[in-house]
Design a protein around this nucleic acid. Structure first.
Length: 942
DNA sequence: AATTGGGCCTAA
DNA sequence: TGAGTTAGGCCCAATT
């Protein structure tokens, strides 16, 4: 009955409370700033509550019972009555999926059997949640109509295909009789290749369910016979489009856009609600209005973001297992998007726990009740976005497995649809960009899982991805200091030690929120969803390709073009960019850098490179085109000019880049910091999207590879960088009256580094600007060479490896020391190496003292060899996951000894001028490793 | 002792 | 079922 006793924590009182917690054990070292922060929330809350007239919420109930009304803040604001005849419903859609269900009377579409129904979840301006069932949209795809096909053949085709699909089904558990809903003749054109605007008949085949598309496509491909036509194989178009994307493209809905349901055009569900949302409505797919993200529709609804963290009582030295080790605490924080601080801060604990000012502590005697109550809490709070750190692969799976072990049957319903169980699945995701990645997947209909770790892994290259390291890196803040090994001891202590643990747990729930805010993740992802038109969830669960496909389909639809399905066949790699042979060395003169901005997108625009403009073999002759109608790219591929037909890809790129220009201009004018963030997120999304179009065409295992485009792009790029070098070196010469002969000392892909022969940074900037403008005039717009920066001095070590002081904003002071490709920016070296090289580079570039750099390096090496450096402090290599850490720790000794010295001798010093370092015996270091080093190596070699 | 291929990570 | 591209440095280990 211990935990049933009402908790007797000290009365709320800010600092005194915090101090009291500190005396509880010897792990306490410094005062916790975080606790003071929490206390500040409390004060703000009290003021808010006085205004709102609510009861205080810092009561600490202890026991077994749980009520969803424990805290009035948990529930969403009361939803005003909605009358579909007189009220328009407007909400921001944040998640979109589909399900198969019985048709709803009065809604368009099939009425027999199960039909696909699109489901949109969202939030209104007043913070009420919405579940919107969209009816009447069915999946479809195209095939070219066979020769001689007329509308008389439609019904026979349909009947034959329908029976073929039915026969093909192994089981027909839905007892379907109609698989093919409709076949229509429609005038379309394939987007692949230019064939003289040959608009031909296509059959648009509408199926009853998305999963019937693939078999229908396969049957038509394998050879299909109907009516008087001979057996033939049909290629298919747009048969590989996700149903959600299909719907969004066709209805002009983009990710996270605002949706309006006009009065009189929708129905409200009262009794037959299936969701937990406040409003649940039905609408026909053609009745909804989708607002483009412009003007007032750029805004973001007050979404509820829930961040949580769990603690488990593991056994000594063993990673917790859900089958054996209990969940002892769950901390949750809920924040409205756009607000500065979380308005719900709560921790559920197993056994009693002293109060924590600024947060609500709920104690439970039974773990199963803790779990069930937390699930109830999630459903009550009705979060739109769920975040945390590694929740996808740890916290959520652990909770689910634990709940299953304890048979907490009401736990695994975490989504917004009643009766849908949240189930764990394994998935592996593989791409060249991110390698092979094993992930757990949990369905939570209507809530977006936004695991901060996944976001960071995708968007940031960091040395370490622990929450602690990440928080320090971005927030200059760290976790509460609690070692993993003592968590179980804290739990088994008393209500004070559990309080210590709860503060730690709360902070781990709080930090992801802070990071989300600092990095503007939600805003940036929403803007990406809006720009590319895919649902928010796709951005974290899918790759780059789907974003381009979504844009391509939208653009193609406007012009009556359809996208073929191509079977992936890996072929030869094609040639990429040129890297100009570097004139390695140290330059104590200003080096100007000229860059082609958005090189690949601008090449595609300038030369009208696209699927729709590609002239395949023999096409030019067949179509009777004259040489004025098309161009030949450096790789020998032919594309028609925009005067014949403007390409889709150039159109998309122009839209993206002009939208970016607009966003940047608005950004400059905007004063509201929140709107500024949105605009900045948008311009970033637009830039990234423009740059990924090229990659999409070159993705050989992709949705629509076209190597003619990608190799032409790189071909033009190679030609351009070469031409730029020649232009600059031919104009800026002594013969032409300049101070010296200019020399391009290096260049990579889209940039050239030029030694102009001037002595000052400001002069280099002037000449650089002028040169860039002059060179630009030799290229087709929008191709543009821009002056970007001056390096002074500049150390050019090798291809893709250099460092220099970066001057851009001012000619008097450098903005930063810029390092490319060197150990300082690589994550496969220990920090000792990175720091050492960084110091050496600073000494060389800022102090201009190469001997000083050598002296420093010698000193560190000697410290190393004489064991004056504590090796255990230097262990940082790859810490990509929690489990990788052990391995990294074991490897570090060896890496430290071996990499440091070999890297030293070979890379840095031969290039520093007038170095006297003895380079004659590169094995010197390893030969003189001390016995203790040898022993250390012995210990870790296995 | 030099060469080669794989792994890793970065530049653009 | 779905995964953007190539160029290139440097370390390591195996091979000649």
């Amino acid at each position: 009955m211990d935990a049933k006793r009402r908790n007797s924590g000290p009365p709320r009182g800010g600092a005194s409370q915090a101090k009291r917690g500190k005396t509880a054990g010897d792990w306490e070292d410094s005062p916790s700033i975080f606790e003071e922060e929490l206390a500040l929330f409390e004060e703000a809350d009290m003021e808010a509550e006085e205004r709102e007239g609510q009861a205080g919420h810092d009561v600490i109930p202890v026991g077994e019972l749980f009520s969803a009304d424990l805290n009035p803040r948990w529930r969403r604001p009361q939803a005003a009555p909605l009358n579909p005849d007189s009220d328009t419903l407007v909400f921001q859609q944040i998640d979109l999926d589909y399900y198969l269900g019985a048709a709803v009377a009065g809604m368009p579409g099939q009425s027999q059997g199960n039909v696909p129904i699109i489901r949109m979840f969202g939030v209104t301006d007043s913070g009420n949640s919405v579940c919107c069932h969209v009816h009447g949209f069915a999946p479809y795809f195209y095939i070219p109509a066979p020769n001689g096909f007329t509308s008389d053949h439609l019904s026979e085709f349909k009947r034959e295909l329908n029976s073929a699909v039915l026969k093909d089904m192994r089981s027909n558990k839905d007892n379907m009789s109609v698989t093919v809903l409709a076949v229509d003749i429609t005038r379309k054109e394939s987007m692949y290749g230019y064939h003289g605007k040959r608009i031909v008949d296509f059959l648009r085949i509408t199926m009853a369910m998305p999963r019937l598309i693939a078999p229908a496509k396969r049957l038509l491909e394998q050879g299909f016979k109907f009516g008087p036509f001979p057996i033939q194989s049909f290629s298919s178009y747009e048969a590989n489009i996700d149903f959600e994307i299909r719907f969004m493209v066709d209805s002009d809905v983009v990710g996270c856009c605002w949706i309006e349901l006009p009065k009189g055009k929708y129905r409200v569900r009262e009794e037959r609600k299936v969701s937990l949302c406040q409003y649940e409505v039905d609408v026909g797919w053609t009745q909804l209005i989708s607002h483009p993200a412009e003007g007032e529709y750029q805004r973001i609804a007050p979404l509820r973001v829930l961040s949580f963290d769990i603690e488990c009582a593991g056994r000594k030295g063993i990673f917790p297992e859900a089958e054996k080790d209990p969940v002892i605490q769950i901390a949750s924080m809920v924040q409205r998007q756009g607000e500065k601080e979380p308005f719900i801060r709560t921790v559920f604990t197993l056994q009693s726990c002293c109060s924590i000012v600024g947060s609500q502590v709920l104690c439970f005697t039974k773990e199963s009740q803790l779990l069930q109550s937390w699930a109830e809490f999630v459903r009550t709070v009705d979060a739109d976005i769920i975040t945390g750190y590694n929740i996808q692969n740890f916290d959520l799976p652990y909770l689910l497995n634990r709940a299953a072990t304890l048979k907490v049957n009401l736990f695994p319903y975490l989504g917004r649809v009643q009766g849908i169980k949240s189930v764990l699945r394994d998935s592996s995701f593989q791409s060249k960009q991110m390698g092979r990645r094993e992930n757990k997947i949990l369905n939570m209909e209507g809530r977006v899982q936004f695991d901060l770790l996944q976001v960071l892994l995708r968007d940031y290259k960091l040395r370490s991805y622990t929450l602690n390291a990440v928080s320090f890196h971005f927030l200059q803040e760290q976790k509460e200091d609690v070692q993993h090994s003592i968590i179980t001891d804290l739990q088994n202590g008393n209500e004070q030690t559990r309080r210590r643990l709860a503060v730690y747990c709360l902070k781990d729930a709080y930090l992801p929120l802070r990071l989300l805010q600092k990095l503007m993740c939600v805003i940036n992802y929403m803007e990406m969803a809006r720009v590319t038109g895919v649902p928010l969830t796709y951005l974290l669960s899918r790759g780059q390709q789907i974003k381009v496909v979504s844009q391509l389909l939208r653009q193609a639809m406007k012009q009556g073009l359809v996208m073929p399905v191509v079977k992936p066949e890996g072929g030869e790699d094609y040639t990429g960019a040129t890297v100009i042979e570097p004139e390695k060395g140290y330059y104590s003169v200003p080096i100007a850098t000229l860059d082609f901005s958005s090189l690949y997108p601008s090449i595609m625009m300038a030369h009208n490179l696209c699927y729709t403009t590609l002239l395949q073999k023999g096409s030019a002759e067949k179509l009777g085109l004259t040489p004025e109608d098309f161009i030949k790219t450096p790789t020998g591929d032919l594309f028609v000019k925009s005067s014949v037909r403007k390409g889709l890809l150039p159109d998309i790129l122009e839209d993206l880049l002009s939208a970016r220009k607009k966003a940047k201009a608005e950004l400059k004018k905007e004063t509201d910091p929140f709107k500024k963030q949105v605009l900045d997120g948008r311009q970033l999304a637009l830039k990234i999207s423009a740059n990924s179009v090229y990659g999409f065409t070159g993705a050989q295992v992709g949705k629509l590879p076209c190597l003619e485009i990608s190799q032409s792009v790189t071909g033009f790029g190679r030609q351009m960088i070469e031409q730029t070098k020649q232009l600059v070196e031919s104009k800026y010469t002594i013969a032409n009256g300049y101070q010296a002969d200019a020399k391009v000392i290096y260049g990579d892909t889209d940039s050239v580094m030029v030694k102009l022969g001037v002595d000052t940074v400001s002069r280099a900037m002037e000449v650089g600007r002028e040169a860039a403008e002059w060179v630009s005039s030799h290229f087709t717009p929008p191709i543009k060479l821009e002056f970007e920066k001056v390096y002074y001095p500049y150390l050019l070590i090798n291809k893709k490896r250099y460092a220099g002081l970066y001057f851009s904003s001012s000619a008097d002071t450098h903005d930063k020391m810029d390092c490319k490709g060197i150990e300082t920016v690589r994550r496969d070296n220990c920090t000792l190496v990175a720091n050492l090289i960084n110091t050496c580079l600073q000494t060389i570039l800022i102090d201009r003292d190469p001997q000083g750099a050598v002296a420093h390096a010698k000193e560190v090496i000697s410290d190393l060899l004489c064991n004056r450096i504590d090796i255990s402090q230097l262990v940082i290599t790859k810490e990509l996951t929690r489990t990788a850490q052990e391995y990294a720790a074991k490897q570090a000794h060896v890496e430290l000894a071996e990499r440091t010295q070999s890297m030293f001798w070979r890379t840095t010093f031969p290039l520093t001028p007038s170095t006297t370092w003895n380079n004659s015996s590169p094995n010197h270091c390893s030969a003189s490793l001390s016995p203790s080093w040898e022993r250390a190596k012995q210990r870790v070699s296995y």
